[in-house]
Amino acid sequence: MRDTDELIETLAQDAKPVTPLAPPLMRAGLLLAGLLAAMGALVAFGGHVEETIAHLSRAPFALELIGALAAGVGAVVAAVMLSIPGRARAWLNLPVPGLVLWLAGGGLECYRQVEELGYVPTSMFASQDCFVFIMAAGLPSAAAAYVFLRRHLSIDAVRVMALAGLGAALLAAVLLQLVHAHGTNPVDFVTHVVAVTLLMLFAMAVGRFDFRRP
């Protein structure tokens, strides 16, 4: 008990003024604005926006793209919200509707490719470029989110970084659709899901490492 009282005195003597964080929704908006601006710049240089818009007339493709975007944005917002101690766990559910849309849209698009277009898979590694793209675009976004959240990551680091990694990966998947606008075949879609999952797991590992650091 005496130790605790001494600790309180020590901490109080060390109490310098601190600037409270801006409201988390504002900070989430700032982080998203940065990530989306970077995506926009990449699309402006190498994107096929007109083709993508043309493909949006197909409901499965539209569902897949809008779902990935909604889930990515939702995951980033949830990561920022949950990085603040005491925020409702319900924020974890924010990316779920988008994820359902993404998986449903991707599944339907795969079905269309197989049933209507007669797609026959050749190799499970046929879409390795997609994998490399999602990783290459997602890792810097996840790193940016980590830097943005790092200062107050100590409470729920693994969960927060899981959401940040998921958001970064899904936004990278959206970017992929914008720079090579064509339908998603089953191998493509499995590759996308694997890349997103791996990036999320990597982000969780980073969160765990950060959390364990003395």
Partner: peptide, 25 residues
């Protein structure tokens, strides 16, 4: 917990209840 609260005291948002913030930590 007190050490953690000290480290993250900037994350308390003025105007909100303090108890959930402390309880979560």
């Amino acid at each position: 917990t007190l050490l953690s609260l000290h480290r993250v005291r900037h994350t308390y948002e003025p105007g909100r209840a303090v108890e959930p913030w402390v309880a979560a930590v």
